[in-house]
């Protein structure tokens, strides 16, 4: 039997606004096996970001259960789920969300500082990551001195920093041209192959979805294969 890194059981998220109920997720049952690249697409407002946020522990479901790496994260308290995010999850955002006042190096170093790693360990790890994403010479540059593709590579490096079990990406190529989108997916494939990293990617980009092991579609909060 294949080990699942993520499992959701009847996962639902309902937003109540005055007397209107918005069902963002409706009984979602999803299994993600280890070391796979999974894509999710669907129209705007269908609940893709909501699903990603709940699996990544930044949002809480209304009903249902989420297991990540054999831990039911819906049962974790605030400080436990913070640690879960720090150690188990890597986030890649559409607009990369790098800190503009920090250099590429410092942006990647941040999760290591948060997990209180000693300085030598941090420096070694960051320069390894810069190597992996091919940005070694740009270590001391601020985000606004880098191209969109380069910024996204730094963001990937930051997501990888604490060697997470699962990497979540929300429209990671939404802001990139096709050349950079292809390069991004090449890097994802490489990491997946070499380090066995699991990816869950929300995307509309065919350049991305064609490289995935499996594609799901979401419509009105319902998940389909």
């Amino acid at each position: 039997m294949v080990e699942n890194i993520v499992e959701t059981v009847n996962l639902s998220k309902v937003y109540k606004r005055k007397n209107v109920e918005i069902v963002a997720l409706n009984d979602v049952n999803l299994q993600i096996p280890k070391a796979q690249i999974i894509c999710i697409n669907g129209p705007s407002g269908s609940g893709k970001t909501t699903l990603l946020n709940i699996i990544g522990g930044v949002d809480r479901p209304t009903r249902g259960k989420v297991t990540v790496d054999n831990v039911d994260i819906t049962r974790l308290g605030e400080s436990q789920i913070t640690r879960f995010r720090l150690e188990k999850i890597g986030f890649i955002f559409q607009f990369h969300n790098l800190f503009p006042t920090l250099t590429a190096f410092e942006n990647i170093e941040l999760p290591l500082i948060l997990s209180k790693k000693p300085k030598e360990t941090r420096e070694k790890r960051v320069s390894d990551l810069l190597e992996i994403v091919g940005m070694k010479e740009r270590a001391d540059h601020k985000p606004d001195e880098l191209s969109g593709g380069e910024q996204q590579r730094i963001a990937i490096a930051r997501a990888l920093t604490n060697n997470p079990t699962l990497i979540l990406a929300d429209e990671p190529t939404g802001d990139l041209d096709s050349e950079n989108a292809i390069a991004f997916m090449k890097l994802v494939k490489e990491l997946n192959k070499k380090q066995g990293q699991t990816f869950l990617i929300v995307t509309h980009d065919p350049l991305v979805s064609q490289e995935c092991d499996k594609i799901y579609a979401i419509r009105d909060g319902k998940l389909r294969e």
């Binding site: 913070t82 800190f99 948060l114």
Partner: peptide, 11 residues
Amino acid sequence: TLKAIGASELT
């Protein structure tokens, strides 16, 4: 972003 990547409330 900081909290999403694992910064605690205390931090």
